[in-house]
Design a binder for these strands. Structure first.
Lengths: 224, 224
DNA sequence: ACTAAAATGTACCAATCTGTTAAATTCATG
DNA sequence: CATGAATTTAACAGATTGGTACATTTTAGT
C-alpha cells in the first residue's frame, strides 16, 4: 500500500477534499448571487452533492463558509495579476498592458467583484478578519511601483505619479464597469456593455490613465 | 388653536405625513447599512416613533418599503445634479465644475451609494420596477450633451466625445471612491481617503476626464 | 475481521422574522 | 356629540432558517 496520493484517491469513495471544493464552489456562486444574509445554507447544500451537515463539518458556520469563499476569489484575482508579465516593455507599453489586463481581469471574475461589493456593504468586516488576504494585495502595487520608477527615471512620467493613485484609478473604472453594470445599463442604455462598447471603454481607460501619468510629448499621436 | 404645537396633549400625534417620513428616514438608513435581506422590519420599527404595523400600513411590505427608500435617494442625487448651474461657463470650465460637483455629490450621499450597490447585488430588480426613477436620469446626460456639443462646436473637444461615456467615467471614479472605500483602505492604506488625499483624487479625476475630452492645446498648462 | 476515528446522512429544534388579526384611539363632519 | 373613516397599538401566527444530536457508513491500521 503506497503513500502516493493520486492513485490512492481514485479508490476512495469518501473524498473530503473534493467535498470541500464542491461546497466552496457552490457557496461562492450563491454568496455572490445573493449576498451574505441573502444566501441560504439549505440552498447551498441542495446544490452540492452532499448534505447540509457537511457544511458545518468543514466550515463551522455560515460566516466561516463566507470567509472561505471571499479568500478564494481574492486568491484567483491575485493569480491573474501575477500571471501578467511585463518584462521587456517600456514604461508606457507596460502601463498600457497592465491597464488592459486589469480591465479584462475584472470582467472575467464577476464573483470576485460581487463578493467585494458585499464585503463593502459589510464594512469589510470579514476581510479584516482574514489572515491571508493582506498578503495577496502587494503584487499589483509593487508591479506598478517598479513601472512608475522606470517611467520617472526615463523622464517620461510626471514626478507626482503615485502607484496607489494609479491603481485606484484603474481599479475604479475596471470595478465599476462590472459592479454597476445593471443599474447603469438600465439608466443610460446598454450601449457601453456591448462588445464594441467594452472595447471602446477599455481604450478610454487606457487613454485617461496614461494622460495623468505620462508627460505630453510633442510628437505623440493624438487620440483617435 | 393651531396644529403646529409640538407636544400638546395626548401621546398620539396623528400625523401621517410625519410618520411616513420618519419610517422612510429610518428605513433608508437601515437598508443602506444592512442590505435588503439584512435589514429587519422589527429593527426599523424599533427605531421609529411608531409601531411595526405602521410600516405595513403605509408601505405594504418589506419590498415596498425598500422601493420607497431607493426612489428617495435617487431623487436626492438628481436634485443635487439639477441644482448645478453651468450657464456662462466655457466648455472646459463647465466640464471641470460638473466633474467636481459629481465627485462631491457622491461623497455627500453615502446612502445613495450603498442602496445602488445593493440594487446591483439584486440585479437592479427593484429599480426596474420603479416608474419614477427613469425620468430622474435624463438631466445629467442632457447637461453633458449640451456641454459636449458646445465643446465640439468650438473645436476644443474631440469629435468622438460622447456624453454617456463621459458620464460613465466620471461616475465610475466618483462612485467607487465611496463604495469601495472600506476594502480599498484596508488593502492599500487610508492615505487616499484623508482630506488631502480626496482633494488630490478629485483633481486627478478632473485631469483624466479632461484628457480624453479636450484636444491638446499648444499653450495648455502641464499637469502640476 | 475488528476497532477507532473520520466522514456523512436524517431528523429535528430553537430562534427569528415577516406579515396579520382584532381592537383601541383620534379626528372630521354632520 | 354621534358616527364612521383614518390612524395606531399590542399580541400573535405561520413559515423560514441557522444550527445540532444522534445514528450510520467508510476507511486505515492492527
Amino acid at each position: 500500500m503506497t503513500e502516493q496520493a493520486p492513485a490512492r484517491k481514485s479508490t476512495w469513495k469518501q473524498d473530503p477534499e473534493a467535498v470541500k471544493a464542491d461546497i466552496l464552489r457552490v457557496a461562492t456562486a450563491e454568496f455572490a448571487d445573493r449576498g451574505l444574509s441573502g444566501a441560504r445554507i439549505d440552498e447551498i447544500a441542495a446544490k452540492t452533492s452532499v448534505s447540509k451537515r457537511m457544511i458545518y463539518y468543514y466550515f463551522s458556520d455560515k460566516e466561516g463558509l463566507y470567509r472561505a469563499a471571499l479568500e478564494g476569489v481574492y486568491a484567483r484575482l491575485r493569480a491573474n495579476e501575477r500571471a501578467l508579465d511585463l518584462t521587456g516593455l517600456d514604461p508606457i507599453a507596460a502601463l498600457t498592458e497592465l491597464i488592459k489586463a486589469t480591465f479584462d481581469s475584472h470582467r472575467s471574475l464577476p464573483d470576485f467583484i460581487r463578493l467585494v461589493m458585499i464585503e463593502n456593504i459589510h464594512h469589510a468586516a470579514y476581510m479584516k478578519q482574514s489572515l491571508i488576504i493582506p498578503e495577496l494585495n502587494s503584487s499589483i502595487i509593487s508591479k506598478l511601483a517598479e513601472l512608475c520608477d522606470a517611467g520617472k527615471a526615463a523622464g517620461i512620467f510626471y514626478d507626482h505619479v503615485d502607484p496607489v493613485e494609479l491603481h485606484w484609478m484603474i481599479s475604479s473604472m475596471s470595478f465599476y464597469n462590472v459592479s454597476n453594470r445593471e443599474t447603469f445599463s438600465h439608466s443610460f442604455g446598454a450601449e457601453l456593455h456591448t462588445s464594441a462598447g467594452q472595447q471602446r471603454l477599455r481604450q478610454r481607460v487606457v487613454d485617461a490613465v496614461l494622460a495623468i501619468a505620462v508627460k505630453p510629448r510633442p510628437n505623440a499621436p493624438a487620440l483617435a
